[in-house]
Design a protein around this nucleic acid. Structure first.
Length: 311
DNA sequence: AACGCTACCAACCGCCGTCTG
DNA sequence: ACAGACGGCGGTTGGTAGCGT
């Protein structure tokens, strides 16, 4: 008797994940934790292969995933590690916190393999001339760096207000004491303040060139202090970690250095909340007409930070 | 404007190692 | 020792956006 397939192929959803599927999966894992991938789709009410659920969680939904372009420092590290370890992407990913093996593999295949092929000495030169913030590698086509991801990347963002009303299907009840606390929804007052702050962010943001290549470092984001600090920055993304509760927030910029809450993937607005006994993930998104939802404390910290930078 | 090509990357596929009964 | 379940890994595919002609 052969091994049974990991899932029935018939009647399964394939392709890009919808926001609702993401939400169901995320909520399920918040409650039940990771693992048990084979049974997860049935129990969560997802028409997905267990493997697909696992991959989606590990490569996209996990709260500790770092977003944004690979930094020059990371790039050098990837090249070094690839030379040392070969195509063991999971091991390489293990040395790059927040990066997934899939992301590194893709990055290697689309960027670095060509670069290394065309410049075989890129690696041997690395020790004498490490990549520095002042001399980042120049992309072949600069405009591509700012490109939004393809639209099928519906990601985890709940940009359809109706979706917020959809309760995830969780068949297996868990004991009350094991349940994660309900996420707090923003109040109306909170939303008002957020909208004001959002206006501020959209209208009065300082020169974003400052954020290039980690030139601003107000705090070491790894020390889990309460300060807000830029995460690894990139050409098209500004991210801030608020480590007390492990919040991550991202804004994106367009060609004119206008900042706005990002709406998908590379350009994104995301909040990750990792508590002590649970992993919560809350995302809100926005479009040009909807008001924005943010964590007020974090945005206030951001505003303070921006004010101080302007001074 | 239309078409073709390229870049990108999320998702899929199949193999393999480990665990468990 | 064995078979099956399960999860992890690396290679590949396919859909989309952007660019050039």
């Amino acid at each position: 008797m052969g091994r049974r397939p990991c899932c029935a192929k018939v009647g399964m959803n394939r392709g890009a994940w919808t926001t609702q599927e993401d939400r169901i999966l995320t909520e399920y894992i918040h409650v039940h934790g990771e693992g048990g991938w084979r049974n997860l789709p049935t129990q969560a009410g997802l028409k997905r292969c267990g493997k697909s659920c696992r991959l989606r969680w590990l490569n996209y939904l996990r709260p500790d995933i770092k977003r944004g372009n690979i930094t020059p420092e990371e790039e050098v590290l990837i090249i070094e590690l690839q030379e040392e370890l070969g195509n063991r992407w999971s091991q390489i990913a293990g040395r790059l916190p927040g990066r997934t093996d899939n992301e590194i593999k893709n990055y290697w295949n689309t960027h670095l393999s060509k670069k290394v092929r065309s410049h075989p000495d890129v690696n041997s030169n690395k020790k004498s001339t490490p990549a520095s913030p002042q001399s980042p590698p120049t992309p072949k086509n600069e405009s591509r760096v700012v490109r939004a991801k393809v639209s099928r990347s519906t990601k985890v963002f709940f940009d359809d207000p109706q979706l917020d009303k959809v309760e995830p299907t969780i068949i297996n009840e868990v004991p009350e004491e094991n349940k994660a606390p309900e996420p707090q929804l923003p109040s109306d007052d909170f939303m008002e303040e957020i909208c004001d702050l959002s206006d501020f962010l959209n209208s009065d943001f300082p020169d974003l060139s400052e954020f290039q290549y980690n030139t601003i470092q107000v705090d070491d984001s790894a020390n889990y202090s309460n300060e807000i600090s830029p995460s690894t920055s990139s050409n098209d993304q500004v991210g801030f970690d608020h480590r007390e509760n492990f919040h991550q927030q991202y804004w994106t910029t367009d060609y004119n250095n206008e900042i706005s809450p990002a709406t998908s993937s590379n350009n994104q607005v995301g909040f990750h909340h990792q508590g002590k006994n649970l992993q919560q993930q809350q995302y809100w998104t926005t479009d040009s007409t909807e008001s924005n939802c943010f964590q007020l404390d974090d945005l206030q910290s951001l505003a303070t930070f921006l004010d101080s930078e302007e001074d």
